[in-house]
Amino acid sequence: MRYTDLKKRECVSTTTGERLGFITDVIIDENKGVVTHLVIGEKRKMSMRKEAEEHVIDLREIETVGEDVLIVALKNNQRR
């Protein structure tokens, strides 16, 4: 699957039911040359914050990849 196809999908957490946002970036293991994590950007809320928070999702936390939605189980919910 291509990154351009993934970034069109919204990410939803099965543990909280929260809509996390859309895939904004990937993290690659430089030694192995494989994608290890997805970076999910939150939708901007009606606030004065300039920067939206991001979630870093391990690929093992992905439960389902649908046509429009990526379902993830947040075990180690990392924000940056």
Rank of each mutant, 00 (worst) to 15 (best):
M1Y: 08
R2T: 11
R2Q: 10
Y3V: 13
Y3T: 12
D5I: 08
L6T: 05
L6Y: 15
L6S: 01
K8Q: 09
R9W: 11
C11P: 02
V12W: 09
S13A: 10
S13C: 12
G17E: 01
E18H: 04
R19S: 12
G21Y: 11
F22D: 06
F22M: 06
I23E: 01
I23T: 14
I23C: 12
T24M: 06
D25K: 07
V26Q: 05
V26G: 07
V26W: 02
I27P: 01
I27K: 14
I27V: 15
I28G: 00
D29T: 03
E30V: 09
N31I: 02
K32W: 00
K32D: 07
G33M: 06
G33S: 02
G33F: 06
G33W: 11
V34I: 15
V35D: 02
V35Q: 04
V35N: 02
T36G: 04
T36E: 11
H37L: 00
H37T: 00
L38W: 00
G41M: 01
G41T: 09
E42N: 08
E42S: 13
E42K: 15
K43S: 09
R44W: 08
K45E: 15
M48Y: 07
R49P: 03
R49T: 14
R49M: 12
R49Q: 12
E51S: 15
E51P: 06
A52W: 03
E53W: 03
E53D: 15
E53N: 14
E54R: 15
E54D: 12
V56L: 14
V56R: 08
V56A: 05
L59T: 11
R60C: 04
R60P: 02
R60S: 14
R60Y: 10
E61Q: 15
E61W: 04
E63C: 10
T64M: 06
T64W: 01
V65T: 12
V65D: 02
E67R: 06
E67Q: 10
E67V: 07
E67T: 09
D68N: 11
D68M: 06
I71D: 09
I71S: 04
I71V: 14
V72N: 02
V72H: 02
K75E: 07
K75L: 11
N77P: 10
N77R: 14
N77E: 14
N77A: 13
Q78K: 14
Q78W: 06
Q78V: 15
